[in-house]
Design a protein around this nucleic acid. Structure first.
Lengths: 208, 208
DNA sequence: TAGATTGTTAATCGATTAACAATC
DNA sequence: TAGATTGTTAATCGATTAACAATC
């Protein structure tokens, strides 16, 4: 188990977690792959295959224990640890993410927010003062930041990514509309909003 | 051509468009699938297969004309038309999207922004006054809005989606962390930020 | 024990890559 | 014409679904 798990499987894990969380809230203690498959509109076979990539979480004749499965998937997703982040780019999107409380519930803490624009430096977002991007490198090392959130225009993003690599960042959550060129040991996860909107637009176009 | 094009192909189109735009900006007039494959870190075979789903855009012995291909992919993605949107939920994320100028460049115009919270109704975001969500239904019909952007908590999202369906909305860009249950003729595109962050966290966990 | 449901192997389906004939 | 590169068919690879033996 846990050898080479496909991107497709990983992408489904957060959705499983969400449905299991809902089931927990409803007070459901156990569920079969079949019943879950009906709720989630996927096949029971896929559910069992997916879970078995990580070991046997179920029990024959019984199904899966909701609470246990929820916890196990949470662990697989690393939600049993705290993660520290910095946000780089204190524009609307950066501030929106800084203010989004739900990340903290999952263990993701915003420790700093940075911008290069002097006009916003010093202003407060939530409980954090926007810092000069010049302090970024030392801040990351001193505070052992794992994740950098890039919410700035593409030109800046490419430039900053070099600083991030130098400062030993582990992962980048990239909202800039550019493919960052990073060493293999730095993890990237892209959120390209305009690409998502274009996909919507494609389907819209298709319809007619 | 254009029969049943897989989700995988569609997801790649916006990225092609981006690279072609960059090439145009660099003044490159033509490119072969081979050269493009090197830039984009994909196979030339995939590029040719992808484009040929929509008809022959290239020419043997020459390659692809950058400007022409850019325009054609733009058309496939529906970027040759204007699209009107409303944003529902004037929180940080909703405001960030309302302020994001780049969507307009692609033809996506925010015509209205709505919230149920009385404290924010009447406030201005960019050039738009936040409206009471009670006006939503008539606004959509009167202004022939195509796309509704859902940037509100999950409970509200499910509720509002019913109003949207009733008002004849065509597409929903859903940022709420919930799977909306909609009729087949309503298009949905989900952006689940917390799921993206969990994927990042998985990879982080994996590394250790 | 009998019934239910998993874990897992085998079959199918779809997507990606390779190869090459068509053609500019 | 010769060279380059597409469009397209065939081969491979991987992911999903089906089937069923193991077992709680």
């Amino acid at each position: 188990m846990a050898d080479k798990i496909s991107q497709a499987v990983i992408s489904r894990l957060p959705r499983y977690l969400r449905y299991l969380g809902d089931l927990k809230d409803e007070g459901v203690e156990r569920i079969s792959s079949h019943d879950l498959s009906i709720r989630m509109h996927v096949t029971a076979s896929q559910i069992r295959q997916d879970f078995n990539h990580f070991g046997g979480f179920g029990q024959q004749g019984y199904g899966y224990n909701v609470g246990y499965l929820y916890d196990e998937i949470g662990k697989i997703l690393g939600l049993d640890h705290k993660h520290s982040m910095v946000i780089i780019g204190a524009g609307n999107l950066g501030q929106a993410l800084a203010n989004y409380m739900n990340f903290e519930k999952r263990g993701f803490f915003v420790k700093g927010i940075f911008d290069r624009n002097e006009e916003v430096i010093g202003k407060k977002v939530r409980n954090l003062e926007i810092q000069d991007i010049a302090n970024l490198e030392s801040f990351i090392t001193d505070n052992q930041i794992e994740i950098a959130v890039l919410t700035l225009p593409k030109a800046g993003a490419t430039e900053i990514s070099k600083i991030l690599v130098r400062s030993g960042i582990t992962a980048i959550w990239n909202f800039a509309h550019v493919d960052l060129d990073l060493p293999d040991n730095v993890i990237v996860e892209n959120v390209h909003l305009s690409e998502s909107l274009m996909k919507l637009s494609y389907k819209l176009n298709r319809k007619k």
